[in-house]
Simulated assay, not measured.
Amino acid sequence: MMIQGLRTVIYPVTNLAEAKAWYEQVLGRAPYFNEAFYVGFEVGGFELGLIPDGQPGSTGATAYWGTEDIDAEVARLSSLGAKVHAPVEDVGGGIRVATVRDPYGNLFGVIQNPHFDRTKVA
């Protein structure tokens, strides 16, 4: 099976530094990944991610399902009737993401993140 389970929910924010500080307080921990393009917190074996320059509220958060081979997974999802919404992109640090729309119009995200250790449980 290509889909490994829910990995990440990404929240778009208008001020990454402020959002990072707020989520540090909410979660009671520092992020495990902290760059200008993305901040990631490990929370109980899952990831809460923040991306800058987003449109909070208008599109909402996107859930990303983990995969070890994102190119193969996007191809498989497409063969099952999904339409590519945002093609595979390296967003920095070797993290690769893509989104597709399922046959019913829902946004479905996939992520290949070499920094996220799925065996870790908080």
Results as ranks from 00 to 15, higher is better:
80 L>D: 04
4 Q>D: 15
74 V>K: 02
122 A>S: 12
17 A>E: 14
101 R>G: 09
27 L>H: 06
42 E>M: 13
49 G>D: 12
86 A>Q: 07
34 N>V: 09
119 T>W: 13
98 A>Y: 05
60 G>I: 07
27 L>D: 12
108 F>N: 06
89 E>Q: 11
63 A>N: 12
99 T>Y: 11
79 S>K: 08
85 H>W: 01
56 P>K: 00
110 V>C: 03
57 G>H: 06
77 L>M: 07
11 Y>K: 12
71 D>N: 08
41 F>D: 09
49 G>A: 14
98 A>C: 09
107 L>N: 06
24 E>A: 13
53 D>N: 15
22 W>F: 14
120 K>R: 14
60 G>S: 00
47 E>I: 15
82 A>E: 04
63 A>Y: 04
115 H>C: 01
68 E>M: 01
32 Y>F: 15
70 I>M: 04
63 A>I: 13
114 P>R: 04
45 G>L: 11
58 S>T: 14
82 A>N: 11
7 R>A: 14
57 G>N: 10
53 D>F: 08
78 S>T: 15
96 R>Q: 05
49 G>I: 11
90 D>C: 01
86 A>I: 12
34 N>R: 00
78 S>P: 02
76 R>K: 07
27 L>Q: 12
37 F>T: 12
89 E>C: 00
112 Q>W: 04
69 D>A: 08
54 G>H: 06
100 V>M: 05
10 I>D: 03
115 H>G: 03
111 I>A: 03
117 D>Y: 11
86 A>K: 02
110 V>M: 02
32 Y>I: 10
61 A>L: 07
93 G>Q: 03
111 I>F: 02
43 V>N: 02
105 G>F: 00
95 I>L: 00
32 Y>P: 06
47 E>T: 15
49 G>Y: 10
31 P>W: 06
32 Y>D: 13
3 I>D: 11
61 A>C: 09
46 F>V: 15
13 V>W: 04
54 G>V: 14
12 P>W: 13
30 A>G: 04
112 Q>R: 01
17 A>D: 15
47 E>W: 04
57 G>M: 06
37 F>V: 10
17 A>I: 11
97 V>A: 03
111 I>W: 01
13 V>N: 06
81 G>S: 02
28 G>F: 12
31 P>M: 09
35 E>N: 04
93 G>H: 05
41 F>W: 02
61 A>N: 04
67 T>V: 14
52 P>R: 01
70 I>Q: 04
82 A>P: 03
75 A>P: 13
84 V>D: 08
19 A>K: 07
50 L>K: 09
34 N>L: 07
15 N>V: 10
17 A>L: 09
120 K>Q: 15
88 V>E: 01
68 E>A: 13
43 V>K: 09
119 T>P: 00
107 L>F: 04
56 P>H: 00
80 L>K: 00
51 I>E: 13
96 R>F: 01
81 G>F: 06
53 D>Y: 12
28 G>H: 10
42 E>I: 11
31 P>R: 07
18 E>W: 05
3 I>F: 15
8 T>P: 03
21 A>D: 14
34 N>Y: 09
96 R>C: 02
95 I>C: 01
